[in-house]
């Protein structure tokens, strides 16, 4: 059942969301009582040290994982009520995914990798190819369409992955440590590209990172630590520390 998406309805809304799982004999509290909202057309970052719960949060928002407690709404859809295959179909329509290690399919060309999500649509083969080539042009790789991922550099592979995330025109683009496996130059280029997706295509972009450079590109930052979303003074302190590490003016004002 989808909630009406009207006016200022945020694209992402989490209500008291927790995620716990059992590892061996221990119960791990990956995320505890997290509530947040991200409006349509924003570029938001989940930041925090390893084990802070930022990736867990991202997986819940993208519908790859399910909460133990609480409710997750994205694009007006309550994700809790979808089963595995419904969730997969929902992701195909609404979410573009970008991974730290690019996760391209090695046996497919750049074009076929980008066209992959379109196989889940009713588009003709010619239309799928056309859209994949447009997406590759957006990320500046129109000269690499027939290359296999193996023959592309790390930065190029991540741009193919971004094109793949973009090709199905999703509401939400989700990136997990997109700069984690890139050098400084490619990391900046990737962050810039993500920002363009927001500015030029009106996409909502949510990213997990511990790259302080991200602060110069995002609109909104959520700081996490030990499974908790930091608020007030704690959040401000975490933000200042990162801003210092970034060594320059930061764009994100909201914390």
């Amino acid at each position: 059942m989808s909630e009406p998406s009207v006016g200022r309805e945020p694209l992402i809304r989490l209500e008291h969301v927790s995620r716990r799982y059992v590892r061996g004999v221990d119960e791990v509290h990956a995320l505890e009582d997290c509530s947040l909202e991200v409006s349509q057309g924003r570029f938001a970052a989940f930041m925090g040290p390893s084990g802070s719960g930022k990736s867990t949060l991202l997986n819940l928002v993208s519908g790859i994982d399910r909460p133990s407690d609480g409710r997750v709404f994205v694009s007006g859809q309550l994700l809790n009520e979808l089963d595995e295959d419904e969730l997969a179909a929902w992701r195909a329509r609404h979410v573009g995914l970008i991974f730290q290690f690019f996760n391209l399919i090695p046996v497919l060309s750049a074009r076929d990798n980008v066209a992959l999500p379109l196989l889940l649509s009713d588009l003709s083969r010619a239309e799928r190819t056309r859209r994949a080539e447009i997406a590759l042009r957006v990320v500046g790789l129109e000269h690499r369409v027939d290359h296999s991922p193996r023959t592309l550099s790390g930065g190029e592979q991540q741009r193919v992955a971004i094109a793949r995330a973009l090709v199905s025109d999703p509401d939400l683009i989700v990136a997990d440590e997109p700069t984690g496996d890139l050098d400084a130059k490619n990391a900046e280029a990737t962050l810039d590209l993500l920002r363009q997706l927001k500015e030029e295509f009106g996409k909502t972009v949510v990213m997990v990172t511990h790259d302080p450079r991200a602060l110069r590109f995002v609109d909104q930052v959520f700081h996490l630590d030990k499974g908790l979303l930091l608020e007030g003074e704690e959040a401000r302190r975490a933000h200042d520390a990162l801003a210092l590490a970034a060594g320059g003016p930061v764009r994100a004002r909201e914390v």
């Binding site: 790859i64 997969a88 992701r91 195909a92 329509r93 979410v95 995914l97 991974f99 399919i105 999500p117």
Partner: peptide, 9 residues
């Protein structure tokens, strides 16, 4: 990856 992209089982 394929499952995350939305391919059904």
């Amino acid at each position: 990856t394929l499952r995350a992209l939305g391919f059904p089982r």
